[in-house]
Amino acid sequence: MSSVFDALHERRSSSKVTDEAPSHEEILELVEAAGQVADHSGLAPWRVIEIRGDSRGIVGESLAAASGLHGHDAEKSIRKSFRAPLLLAVVVSPRPSVKVPYWEQEAVASGVAHALTLLLHERGYGAMWRTGIQTRSDAVRMAHRLEPGEQMLGWIYTGRHPDRPRDRRRSRIDVRRHVSTL
């Protein structure tokens, strides 16, 4: 088993995956673990929507509509939603709180999404996080049946890593540019 340190260094977005995806039961297990991220007041201001099979077309159609695409361009956009056998939509579901502002609740949902990508990586699945301006569109909101106040963060496209050896180490950042002292 790899360490958290190794997982963070090795994880990369996987634009190409096989048709094998985690089962519903496995997703429940992984989401339960991902849900252990730091969460001020334990609000759990997030939820995950599993999208499989033909339902993936709903995602593509909503993204095409949000982008104002028609005809061939819309079809091309819709096909992209079928690049992985499982899409995990991550939703911010803010809770009323005088102590925890919206931005902090959105950070918790983002933390859950990132933890989920690391857990999927550990299990041998590839994941690609897809976001964009369309996540906050009415078309996406309606297609995913979001409740009032909820916001889409994006989708984690998920499938098994193809069997292809490659160096999984990511390039290092210049840490001195990102860490300072006070």
Rank of each mutant, 00 (worst) to 15 (best):
W46D: 03
L86V: 08
G111C: 13
A7C: 07
P94V: 07
E150R: 12
R177Y: 02
I49R: 08
D54L: 13
M1N: 03
P101T: 01
A65L: 12
P96I: 08
E32Y: 04
L182C: 02
A143V: 04
D174M: 04
E104Y: 06
S137G: 10
E122K: 10
G159V: 08
S41R: 15
M142V: 15
S14L: 07
P94Q: 12
A44M: 13
G53H: 11
M142Q: 15
I173K: 05
D39C: 10
E29T: 05
I58M: 12
G53R: 10
G42Q: 11
E50Q: 13
R12P: 00
R136F: 09
M1G: 14
S55D: 15
A113S: 14
P85Y: 07
L116T: 08
T135E: 13
E10F: 14
L116G: 04
L30S: 00
A113N: 05
W46P: 02
G126F: 04
I27Y: 01
A33W: 00
E25H: 08
A21G: 03
W155D: 00
R83C: 07
A115I: 08
T158Y: 04
D54R: 14
A38Q: 04
W129I: 09
G68M: 09
S23N: 05
R164Y: 02
P94H: 12
I49H: 08
I27N: 03
T135P: 03
E147N: 13
S93W: 03
P101L: 08
L120I: 09
A139G: 06
L63C: 13
R11Q: 08
S180R: 14
P101Q: 05
F82V: 06
A21T: 00
E20F: 01
G42K: 11
L87V: 04
R168V: 07
R177K: 15
S41N: 13
D138R: 15
T158A: 05
H70I: 07
E122M: 11
K76W: 09
I58N: 13
R172T: 10
R79M: 11
L146Q: 11
S97H: 12
D19C: 00
V90R: 03
H178V: 11
L119W: 05
G132N: 12
G154A: 10
H9C: 09
A109M: 10
H161T: 03
S14V: 02
V91Q: 06
Q36K: 15
S14D: 06
H24E: 13
H178Y: 15
L43A: 11
R11H: 08
V59D: 06
